[in-house]
């Protein structure tokens, strides 16, 4: 048996522009793997997806406590970096209309530990307007509040989600 434990699988609801799953991080595990797959949006235009955590009240954290950097590299050589020390979300990954879209694998560390900030690393892939956009992300949520959920939203609500799934796994660590 592998050491990953599937905790939750949630399909994206078609037609929404914010997608969060709560009550996935508990005191049972310190480290989680979150996989997004088959994410697509209704518009053929590129749209920016920003990540946020969810607090124990079920509300997305919007305080200016996200310190992050995202490196986006492309097959056509036009790379970009997004970073910030006091942002209200994590910028950014991309999605658009299927058959392109977005997938990613992410690690979340210490989300419910109120003596630690919440850390996040991730790798993503998006096919946007025939261009490959690979993303490498790091983030610290500089709050010690209890974090129990994760997800993302379409920046500016410029479009809505069409398909997608989010799966959360806990990493077993032998005592």
């Amino acid at each position: 048996m592998s050491n990953l434990r599937l905790i939750n699988e949630t399909e994206v609801t078609t037609g929404i522009s914010e997608f969060y799953v709560n009550n996935i991080f508990t005191d049972d595990f310190d480290i989680y793997k979150v996989v997004f797959n088959n994410i697509s949006t209704a518009s053929s235009s590129s749209c920016n997806l920003f990540h946020r955590f969810v607090d124990s009240s079920g509300i997305a954290v919007t305080s200016s406590k996200y310190t992050f950097q995202t490196l986006q590299i492309r097959d056509d050589g036009v790379s970009a970096q997004y970073r910030g020390d006091a942002n209200t979300s994590v910028s950014r990954v991309l999605s658009d209309l299927s058959p392109e879209g977005h997938s990613s694998t992410n690690w979340i560390y210490n989300p419910t530990n109120t003596n630690s900030y919440t850390y996040y690393t991730g790798q993503s892939m998006s096919g946007i307007s025939s261009v490959l956009r690979m993303g490498q992300q790091i983030c610290v949520l500089e709050e010690t509040s209890k974090i129990t959920g994760f997800g993302f939203f379409v920046n500016g609500a410029t479009t809505t989600f069409s398909t997608g799934v989010m799966r959360t796994y806990g990493l077993r660590v032998d005592a």
Partner: peptide, 14 residues
């Protein structure tokens, strides 16, 4: 949840 709520007997042991 696929199976049960997260409810491990011991922290991190799964």
């Amino acid at each position: 949840y696929l199976g049960t709520q997260p409810n491990d007997v011991k922290k991190n042991t799964g």
